[in-house]
């Protein structure tokens, strides 16, 4: 059960919208920190992956945002919050292959419409809320002692 005590680590990292040069830097940093906490490899990988997809989304679509990481004994929680255009139809955006990406995003190798789909696949709990014209909030939980069915 999520709890407020027992926090092993927490920090927030700002992410600049539109800055494709440094996209991914925050996630690399988060991955290194999680690794240093000696969490299981598979947990580190999944948490880094959802952080990375979130970071790419902020860089690709938002003006600015931040990624927050909280580590507790039983879970890693990654939250991504942005100020941006928001998502009109979340259900549609969650579908594999649906994308509103522009040329610049596609040049980087993204914008295939797999981001939110991947996040949903790799996290144990995933919440998304969005307000058009305001921004988007994602909360992703990776449980530490629970294996997901698919081996990631």
């Amino acid at each position: 059960m999520p709890q407020d005590d027992g926090i092993i680590y927490q920090n927030s990292f700002p992410v600049e919208g539109g800055n494709f040069e440094t996209a991914g830097q925050v996630s690399s940093q988060i991955k290194a920190i999680l690794k240093s906490l000696n969490l299981p490899k598979e947990v580190v990988r999944r948490a880094a992956l959802v952080a990375y997809e979130s970071e790419i989304n902020i860089v690709s679509y938002a003006t600015q945002g931040e990624i927050k990481v909280v580590v507790r004994p039983a879970e890693v929680v990654v939250e991504a919050n942005d100020v941006g255009p928001g998502i009109e139809d979340i259900e549609l955006a969650m579908q594999a292959g649906y994308s509103t990406a522009n040329e610049k995003i596609r040049e980087m190798g993204f914008g295939a419409g797999m981001g939110l789909f991947n996040i949903n696949t790799y996290s144990d709990i995933f919440h998304i809320t969005s307000e058009v014209g305001r921004g988007t909030y994602l909360k992703m939980v990776v449980k530490i002692n629970e294996k997901k069915e698919h081996e990631t």
Binding site: Q25, S27, S28, K31, K41, L49, M108, G109
Partner: peptide, 15 residues
């Protein structure tokens, strides 16, 4: 065939 830094970031995230 992609050559930008995101290839390395992606590789790092995925081990």
């Amino acid at each position: 065939g992609l050559t930008n830094p995101q290839v390395v970031r992606t590789a790092d995230v995925l081990d």
